[in-house]
């Protein structure tokens, strides 16, 4: 055929074919998305500090392991209260002349998803210690350490943000670990990562592929307190329940855990705690994770009967009552 022997026509056809398809599946949908989506009105504007922190995040290639997208599948529920939608990314524009837009959605989840990390783990202390060396707080972590975001100083002033790092992680260096500007920016960025609330009345997209409960005989299994503890509490209070001195309090022998003030206990789990200046602020873990009464009960009973703690078990009914009460309190 003549067509196949004429290189101009042949190559031009191939090119137009490809370019046409490119227009249809890439360029036009991209333009369409860019024009028809606006950031949610409830989304907090990004502070200058957080923006600078995002640049630190980008330049260190954190996106290689951390996604920022809650997919609309049930298994992603742990990363956010709702699936991510186009509007969540609509406000992200080109970084600068040299660098492209960074939605940082990522394609690998070697580490955890960060879409809602500002809600899930807002603690400054935890984040800074974790950045200095993740293995201080999460023994099994394989995340790189970022000591170059910190300096080690003999003298510190009141302005310095001192990070409480155990001695064995200082490699024999003497002094206090102080977060640099970059570390503080990065922290600000991480704390700014929060899922914005959808406007009232707009339908929340569904999580698909719901997990079927093991429906053997109809009785739902009681949640595993140990697993829930690992997923929600362990990164601060540690696997041995002893916390981290100067940052996270020990649960071993704790009066709250072993005591009888169940209301305070439930309140702390659901809404966080900031009553003791020598420790970091505890976020509203229970509310953020949407823990049910059964799950809170499981966690409480696990904590009351581990690491040498021996206290009476609580019942789901008690916790449920208190949960409603605590929720009411915070609503006010």
């Amino acid at each position: 055929m003549e067509f196949f022997n004429n290189h101009t026509r042949l190559f031009r056809t191939a090119f137009l074919f490809f370019a046409g398809l490119t227009l249809l599946v890439a360029i036009l949908p991209a333009i369409n998305n860019q024009q028809n989506n606006q950031p949610l009105p409830s989304a907090e504007p990004v502070t200058e500090e957080a923006m600078k922190g995002k640049l630190v995040f980008i330049s260190n290639g954190c996106v290689a392991c951390h996604t920022q997208q809650v997919r609309n599948v049930d298994m992603d529920k742990v990363w956010g209260s709702r699936p991510s939608i186009a509007a969540d990314y609509a406000g992200i524009k080109r970084t600068d002349t040299w660098r492209n837009t960074a939605t940082l959605m990522g394609t690998e989840r070697t580490g955890s998803d960060l879409t809602d990390i500002g809600n899930r783990q807002p603690s400054s202390d935890w984040n800074l210690v974790h950045l200095f060396n993740p293995r201080i707080v999460v023994k099994e972590s394989i995340m790189p350490a970022y000591p170059w975001l910190f300096t080690i100083q003999k003298e510190t002033t009141a302005k310095d943000v001192v990070v409480n790092v155990p001695k064995e992680y200082l490699n024999g260096k003497e002094g206090k670990v102080v977060a640099t500007e970059e570390a503080r920016y990065l922290l600000a960025y991480l704390q700014s990562l929060k899922q914005a609330k959808l406007p009232d009345g707009s339908p929340t997209p569904d999580f698909l592929y719901k997990r079927k409960q093991a429906a053997s005989g109809g009785n739902t299994q009681a949640p595993d307190g140990n697993l829930l503890y690992t997923a929600n509490c362990q990164s601060c209070h540690q696997a041995n329940g002893e916390g981290l001195p100067g940052a996270f309090p020990s649960l071993k022998g704790s009066p709250v855990v072993n005591g009888n003030n169940l209301q305070l206990y439930v309140d702390i789990i659901m809404n966080g705690y900031d009553a003791r200046p020598e420790f970091g602020v505890m976020p509203a873990v229970g509310t953020n994770a949407g823990l049910s009464a059964a799950e809170v009960t499981a966690i409480i009973n696990h904590e009351r009967n581990s690491w040498g703690n021996k206290a009476e078990k609580v019942t789901e009914a008690d916790v449920k009552k208190l949960l409603d009460f605590v929720k009411l309190k915070t609503a006010k």
């Binding site: 599946v25 991209a30 860019q34 989506n37 609509a90 992200i92 524009k93 939605t103 959605m105």
Partner: peptide
């Protein structure tokens, strides 16, 4: 850069 804002970036990235 003309089609890279918001999710535009992601669509182009996949492509």
């Amino acid at each position: 850069p003309s089609w890279q804002n918001g999710l535009g970036e992601t669509i182009i990235q996949g492509y």
